[in-house]
Amino acid sequence: MRGPVIGVLALQGDVREHLAALTGVGVDARPVRRPAELDAVDGLVIPGGESTTMSKLVDIFGLREPVDKRIAAGMPVYGSCAGMIMLAAEVLDGRPDQRGFAGIGMTVRRNAFGRQVDSFEAPVRVAGVDGPAFHAVFIRAPWVERVDPGVEVLGRVTGGPAVDRVVAVRQGNLLATSFHPELTGDLRLHRYFADLVAAAR
């Protein structure tokens, strides 16, 4: 039996880093820009990038409905940063026409920590992932302001001005982080997601 195939939504953003991280945990990883490419994957990563740009390109290139259908059918999806925004049912401080996928029952605030000069690195523990805290990289990152019942909070900021803000969540097969594990060479979260994809097949 073949291993899981995981796609990375390759419309814009740090696609290469996610592909490298997935390859690093032994997954067959492929860029996804077209509905036909989506059909060939068992799970999807939505990378970091500019969520307003991604949202537009998803509509223009006809990916919204196919992705929503796959999510409804149980396809695992992991979003980092902009990917978290794309998975949120409600977005604050976004553009009025900005829409994500029919994803996690949560409200996220875009650019919540501030502008680029406020971008930072900090340790974050993620429930269900063994080992030390992640060295989390936050870049004009969102945070989660509210979650529906049934959404698990997996990680929070542990210090500083934004202490206790929620930055990692999971709802069923959907996973989202405000930070970018793909930038640090720490592959544990991609392994966690690959296991989730393998279990869902």
Binding site: G49, V117, S119, E121, H180
Partner: peptide, 27 residues
């Protein structure tokens, strides 16, 4: 690109600066 920061939060590191540009890729 920066030392392990322990429990501290750090701003303006090479990683957050270069990482910002990574997020603009393909744009």
């Amino acid at each position: 690109t920066s030392p392990n920061a322990g429990d501290a939060q750090v701003w303006g590191t090479a990683r957050v600066k270069r990482g910002m540009a990574e997020m603009l890729k393909g744009g």
